[in-house]
């Protein structure tokens, strides 16, 4: 009895989170991630649309020049809101300042990130409703609105969608100009994006 009672309550409790999925994921996830990692993720997802990020990491600039540079990029079309721009600028000004050495090893991410893509666990089933926001945040700059294509290939109705494993491996390991997402997105999140893409019609 008590078990039966618990389950519905649990679900009811989760319901708002599912309904508010996109916002919850965007903010909740962000706060859970260390700030340097959030910044690295923004760099990979938003700054490599027009040029590879080596152009960014070879600079050694004072904070005001970083601010001006990030502003210029946003003006030209980099997808960053105010908060993200501040976060990224602060990261760049901290590690890529004028006296930084020739090669800056990016600070190691905490161990929660390690072994995410172990391959040992079976691929989870995706939830399309959660995939929309994740797609928008991470993939849209390169793959376009509704997977229509851009710097990266069109993903809507892409044959790779029929092969869930290949999709997951490609996304988590990266390919060519596409960064690897394995240390950034959980297998569940990749599956959610997959489910959302699968539901698209052209």
């Amino acid at each position: 009895m008590s078990q039966r009672w618990h389950q519905p309550v649990g679900w009811l409790f989760l319901l708002p989170l599912i309904l508010l999925g996109p916002t919850w994921l965007a903010t909740g996830r962000a706060e859970e991630q260390p700030i340097d990692q959030q910044a690295q993720r923004l760099l990979a997802a938003r700054c490599s649309v027009c040029h590879s990020t080596d152009l960014v990491l070879q600079q050694r600039l004072p904070r005001d020049r970083w601010e001006a540079t990030v502003d210029k990029m946003v003006h030209w079309g980099a997808h960053l809101d105010k908060e993200e721009a501040t976060l990224l600028t602060s990261y760049l000004a901290t590690y890529f300042h004028q006296d930084a050495g020739p090669v800056v090893a990016l600070p190691a991410a905490p161990s929660v990130q390690a072994g995410r893509e172990s391959g040992a666990t079976p691929a989870p089933g995706g939830v399309a409703a959660r995939g929309a926001a994740l797609y928008k945040q991470n993939c849209l700059p390169c793959h376009g609105e509704a997977g229509s294509g851009g710097v990266g290939p069109k993903l809507a109705r892409n044959p790779i969608l029929a092969q869930a494993d290949r999709f997951r491996m490609t996304v988590s390991q990266g390919r060519g100009a596409m960064p690897p997402w394995g240390s950034v997105l959980r297998p569940q999140e990749i599956a959610d994006i997959h489910a959302w893409l699968n539901a698209l019609r052209d």
């Binding site: 990692q37 690295q40 993720r41 990979a44 090893a105 990016l106 600070p107 190691a108 991410a109 905490p110 161990s111 990130q113 390690a114 390991q173 990266g174 960064p179 690897p180 394995g182 240390s183 950034v184």
Partner: peptide, 8 residues
Amino acid sequence: AGAAGSLA
């Protein structure tokens, strides 16, 4: 060697 290595 870092955990963020592949991303880096």
